[in-house]
C-alpha cells in the first residue's frame, strides 16, 4: 500500500500517513469551503489501512492551529470512525497538540474527546512557537 503524503496548501493542512509505522500526522490549518477535499483522502487511507489483515496500532498526531466549522465536523466524523475501530479491537492513540496559551484549541480537544469510548485521546500542551 502507498503512503499518503499531502503538502500544506493555503487553506489545507499537511497530511502524512505512513502505513509502515501506523503514524498519521495532520498539521497546520484547515479551512477549505468543502472539508471533504481535505478529509476525503484521509478517510480513504484509514479505511484501507484498517482493512489490512493485522494493522499496526495507529498513532494519530494532530497539531492544528486553526480549522473552520466544516473541518471540525469532518474531524469529529474521523474520531467517531476511529472509535468504532477501537471498539472492535484496533489500538488507536490520538495526540491532540495545542499551544499552552491557545484556549480555543484546548476547548476543541475537549469537545472532540467527550463520549469517545475506546479511542485513547490525549490532550498535549506544547510550548507554541
Amino acid at each position: 500500500m502507498e503512503n499518503l503524503l499531502i503538502t500544506a496548501q493555503e487553506r489545507s493542512p499537511h497530511v502524512d500517513f505512513n502505513f509502515a509505522t501506523g503514524l498519521l500526522t495532520i498539521a497546520g490549518e484547515s479551512y477549505p469551503d468543502d472539508a471533504s477535499k481535505v478529509f476525503g483522502p484521509i478517510f480513504e487511507a484509514l479505511d484501507s489501512y484498517l482493512a489490512e489483515v493485522q494493522p499496526l496500532p495507529i498513532r494519530l498526531e494532530i497539531e492544528l492551529v486553526y480549522f473552520n466549522s466544516s473541518s471540525a465536523k469532518a474531524l469529529m466524523n474521523m474520531f467517531k470512525r476511529l472509535d468504532q475501530a477501537a471498539i472492535a479491537g484496533q489500538k488507536i492513540d490520538v495526540y491532540w497538540r495545542f499551544a499552552a496559551e491557545d484556549e480555543t484549541m484546548r476547548e476543541f480537544g475537549e469537545d472532540f474527546s467527550e463520549d469517545l469510548s475506546a479511542l485513547a485521546f490525549h490532550l498535549v500542551e506544547t510550548d507554541g512557537k
Binding site: A72, K73, K80
Partner: peptide
Amino acid sequence: LREAPEDSSRGGTIG
C-alpha cells in the same frame, strides 16, 4: 458536531 450533516445546508448550522 455529532449530528449527521443536513442535506441542503453544506454545514451552515454548525458555522
